[in-house]
Design a protein around this nucleic acid. Structure first.
Lengths: 355, 355
DNA sequence: AGAAGTTTTGAAAGCGCTTACATTTAATGG
DNA sequence: CCATTAAATGTAAGCGCTTTCAAAACTTCT
């Protein structure tokens, strides 16, 4: 019952030493109590906890980190923040992190063009315990450093060719396959495909799924209908517009390999005077929140984004706990979400082509 | 030119001492060079920088923090992540922070029900240099502690009644006023208003703008048409549905005081068999990215969200630099964005009411 | 009661950095 | 050329915590 309201009111923050004094123990013991160390006498523990509460003690994170403790911070590298895709994943991550009492520090990749800055910020500076990489476009640059240091990380919706990374992804090929089949079943044979950058594994897989489905349905793959893309809405818009204005025999359906480019495609299609899905069907991939809010509601392949974030975060936390677990790959199921943007092969097709 | 590839390959990370050795100086000097201290001889500075580069030295953040340096981390408290509102603001924040070489650590308020945890995480743990609070619902709980400690923070899209906080907001009253006037000019007189929680200053201000406009137009304010809300889509949906099913004399326009609830309202309106804007006009507030993507495109009052984020971040950084600047309030202009969700007083109105 | 554990604790050594403070070196002036 | 002042650098003391290491306090068992 030491009352240390002594004359020193210079000290700003309550330190572990204050708690030690107030509870008549040593700093070491307080630290043990706080870290849940087993061999502390019940009564001591209580005394310490009481003092902690009474003084409003909160551990100083930098000090703890420096001394070798856990910072309970993980780095979250995202490409940007202004679309639902990232937000939804982040939401899942945040939930999983929250229940483990971790916080994410945010790194946006657009501002880290090279390896340097990002590496410096996230890894070498000793703050984060692990890293979550959301759909990074470029990975070769720093993945090696990460592995070299045995620094825990997991890739979300992106794959490392070496198979040495922990990754959470979804059944991209299968999803695209089903989407394509769906379109074919509706009677479409001329289907345009807007692909993502082929540096991104998911873009390759989705393209593959598309081609496989076409092949399996006995429809020849027409390379002219495979449009170069980058998962951006603007690109979806431009590439679609170019296609529709090319005057060549038009597609009756467009498979945009992510929702964002699908939104762009929708704009372009409408601007060219076609209606969706009467003239041209559009299908996307991801099922971001907006997809059910656009008009017409977008038929798309759902990736369980929030779940992916959650799974990834848990996976990371697990690795942080046991640094030597072997790399693991977690592939979650996609699901075709049928809404209003796809229709049967357009009857009025001919009328349109004359226009 | 000291080559210190000595036999000790035990050390994992390069420390300031390594750099000191390699450059034939002391740790203190290295630290000075790194922090841009003025009185270091040019040649010394060069030698140090060269060693830094050669060894790939990166400062250890916790150590730096602990020793009293800058962590270059600011806390970002957001209500959630899965809507464009927060994402857009965050995007602006991130940009401003990036150019000052700061990173945000993310705190989502849904997981910090009381003051305790959040306070502990963000302030007392000594990691962050300042705090950015995005539209916090509750602030009384920790604002006092912040001020007491003279901890730099700025509120975004939320105001502190005491006028003692730094805040970045927009012309909420004025924006709502103009939106309402616009509706009135279109011929509407029965306008429903879905308000936000009145704990949020913006919600009060928007309501006030609505009432003021009505009054100035000589239209009596009908309390029955002011619907309780909370800025959530679900709420906008439910409250609108209830209103439309109440059978009482229906509104011809709905002013949802944020876009999210406007989206909810749109759903409800359509589900009740009305069309927008032919039967019922809808106007929102915020202009989140989705607003231009929904159908029909939402007429709304734009808050410069990204700019608000940017301004707030700069303001915070400024306060971190000069801790004693007086509280400042920065009110940015809103702008009425006319799109497709509002139309003139419906001619076919009577037909509908009979249905 | 004394040996042989076990459980509990405290003292003290850092973690890697910043920052007085002290000291050395260079520059200036008479 | 030496005092005087300014510039440049090194020494050392922490920042608040975790974690050996070793000692103290109990138990248990002959």
């Amino acid at each position: 019952m030491v009352d240390d309201n002594s004359s020193s009111n210079k000290r700003r923050t309550v330190t572990i030493a204050d708690v030690a004094n107030a509870s008549g123990t040593s700093g070491a013991t307080v630290s043990r109590v706080l870290s849940g160390y087993e061999f502390v006498k019940e009564s001591t523990r209580n005394r310490v906890m009481e003092a902690v509460k009474r003084l409003g003690y909160v551990a100083n994170l930098p000090a703890r980190s420096l001394a070798g403790g856990r910072s309970r911070i993980i780095g979250l590298l995202v490409p940007n923040l202004d679309n639902g895709y990232v937000g939804t994943i982040a939401q899942g991550i945040d939930q999983a992190l929250a229940s483990a009492n971790y916080d994410p520090i945010l790194y946006t990749s657009h501002r880290h063009p090279g390896k340097e800055t990002f590496y410096a910020n996230a890894i070498a500076n000793g703050l984060t315990e692990g890293l979550l990489l959301v759909a990074p476009q470029v990975l070769t640059t720093y993945l090696d450093s990460l592995r070299e240091r045995n620094f825990p990380y997991v890739l979300i919706d992106q794959t490392d060719a070496t198979e040495n990374s922990n990754v959470v992804e979804s059944t991209n090929r299968q999803g695209a396959y089903e989407a394509t089949q769906y379109l074919v079943k509706l009677g479409h044979t001329r289907i345009a495909f807007i692909r993502g950058a082929l540096t991104v594994q998911s873009a390759k897989d989705r393209l593959q799924g598309f081609k496989d489905a076409l092949e399996d349905c006995g429809i020849p793959v027409c390379e002219d209908l495979i449009l170069e893309g980058n998962y951006q809405q603007q690109n979806g818009y431009e590439t679609t517009k170019t296609l529709l204005q090319s005057g060549e025999s038009l597609p009756t359906a467009i498979f945009a390999s992510n929702d964002l480019s699908a939104f762009g495609a929708m704009d372009a299609v409408r601007e060219c005077g076609f209606s969706i899905p009467e003239d041209i069907s559009i299908i996307g991939f991801d099922d971001v929140p907006q997809s059910s809010m656009v008009y017409p509601k977008l038929t798309t392949v759902r990736q369980p984004l929030e779940l992916m974030g959650k799974v990834a975060a848990r996976m990371l936390l697990e690795r942080i706990g046991c640094p030597n677990l072997p790399p693991q790959r977690n592939t979650l199921d996609t699901q075709l979400i049928i809404r209003d943007s796809c229709g049967p092969y357009p009857a009025q097709r001919d009328r349109i082509e004359q226009a």
